[in-house]
Write a protein that binds this DNA or RNA. Sequence first.
DNA 1: TTAAATGATGTAACCGGTTTCATTAGGGCT
DNA 2: AGCCCTAATGAAACCGGTTACATCATTTAA
Lengths: 337, 337
Amino acid sequence: MTTIRIVSKLAGVSTATVSRTLKNPELVSPDTRQRVMQAVQSAGYRPNQLARNFSSGKAYAVLVLVPNVANPFFSRVIRGIEQEAQACGYAVLLGDTQGSVSREQEYARMGLTSQADGLIQLDSRYPFSPEDRELASTVPFVNACERIDEHAGYPVVELDNRGAARALTQHLLDLNLKRLAVITGPARSPIVRDRLAGMKDALLGAGLTLDAQAVVQGDFSMQSGHDAAERLLQLPERAQAIFCMNDEMAIGAMRCLRQRGLRIPQDIAIAGFDNIEFAAYTEPSLTTIDQPAEQLGRQAMRALYQLMKGVPLAQQHMMLSYRLVVRDSTAIITDKK
Amino acid sequence: MTTIRIVSKLAGVSTATVSRTLKNPELVSPDTRQRVMQAVQSAGYRPNQLARNFSSGKAYAVLVLVPNVANPFFSRVIRGIEQEAQACGYAVLLGDTQGSVSREQEYARMGLTSQADGLIQLDSRYPFSPEDRELASTVPFVNACERIDEHAGYPVVELDNRGAARALTQHLLDLNLKRLAVITGPARSPIVRDRLAGMKDALLGAGLTLDAQAVVQGDFSMQSGHDAAERLLQLPERAQAIFCMNDEMAIGAMRCLRQRGLRIPQDIAIAGFDNIEFAAYTEPSLTTIDQPAEQLGRQAMRALYQLMKGVPLAQQHMMLSYRLVVRDSTAIITDKK
DNA sequence: TTAAATGATGTAACCGGTTTCATTAGGGCT
DNA sequence: AGCCCTAATGAAACCGGTTACATCATTTAA
């Protein structure tokens, strides 16, 4: 391997000068600069990044913890993170935790060993193991999309989930649909609670309440949406609309409803959340809340970058706004008064 | 930061002994070992991975180049890579190239600067820039899913695309469908050519040929599938079945057909490729070729691991087998003779 | 004319592990 | 007792950059 010493010999200068030529050319006289560049060229020299990192004590890499890269929403968030990271001169280390706490903790350790300069967690858990907590307190950390439960205190970039759920519910109410059902995600998830709260906000405003039986839990998978819809159909009184807490579950639910011969939205309306690309291509197309996934990722990375530079964040809690996307799955004609 | 020297002081031994205790405990006497572990504990010592990497000359990281992480197929492949990498003690660096050659080359450079010990390319291009080629020849490299065009010579892990396309086409022919159309991907892609060849194999076997007009090019996006279907419908004679080279385009095409009031599969059958999760939830559900995406990823990572260890590969060309998944989009009842 | 400031470059320490080689102590054998 | 072998440990080099500090030449200011 060609090292800086070889190049310095070739150019007849010291290693310091070679280093300077490459990093701060303005500190070197023009003709020395030229001689060095010449030597770099002819030797095919590439500064060893490992040595640079070691020397600077930085890895120039951030670790992204995600429960599942194959999830269409998360993968978009990661895309956003990646773009911003690239722009900041950072590489992205991927940590697919598969929802496993131990894998998460194992990955998180990379923050303590300087393998990653910062962490972005897309799940609702503080990733460090209890015994690592104290050391971990100095590791730049940002939480995105999901909010960490517990006693918070971590920077978080998320959607206005409550507001979004409220707006979506209001949309359903505006269609004169009064008996609403909801397919939630895992109960431990703070965003599920936020969205539920938003839904109740809107119902309350209309003088309605949510029947406990009409709240069914899923796990954000299509299959679970399908199963949840099945359970909802067994209730004595059929809901007029189902609000699903992500698009995948809505897609699963829609399939179940169609199999039962129900027409969407005439017999029952459906709404999702996220606005994944497929939502526009379902039959019927899916009304949903658009989450600016890439934006969320970029914003999280930007915040992390601040932290890594040692700049305190202007605000710990960054909330991005949603957009209601009305499509055919709630296309009901009402006579507006 | 706690360093190995601090720990060595604490334990009253040399740094060498601390290092040995952590990496080769059997070289250290039991009571020294205990004393060192004690010191490690009380100091909260974590060996700096940056220093380890530098010292060993390895980054213990592999770079994955992907045109788009948000693609459901690629993200599954990445999942497979990640799992296997984790098992091999390697981290995964994500390089989303967005199809841009320059981003690709910029990332590939990480292989030359020791930031990554190996590369996996999921696109059909050799990622190094022309001036880097010579140096790059020593960088462990594996190509997966897509095959690099040119003068090959790189290890590749891919599906038996030709066989799969042949089987799928045969399935359509068995349903007594004779006028077939196809929505392809970008013409430069070798897998597109392979699949086209497989399709022609089957047609030839049935004494049929593919009408040049019935071959329409897409770009693997849903929108392009929609548009391509539109074009196919404008042909004088309507095809009886459309073979789409991925599921997304099939989904786009299906949407177009339904908008035109055509029934699937009665009026026109549809088949996709990949078997992404959504294929089972479309209306009607989609007949497709199942690609073992995670498998492809794992296999690619395993091959790369071999190369990084310096073990030559038993075979340069690894082909995984497909599985035909018949669903409703080709559910046509035929009277079997 | 001389002191001080500036610019260009070199020397060598440094980052935090790993590892080679040397040294020492202890055990077994003749 | 004397020798050899092995196990345990330490001293120090090393990995390849970066950078603080020293040095020297040249210019500027007084």
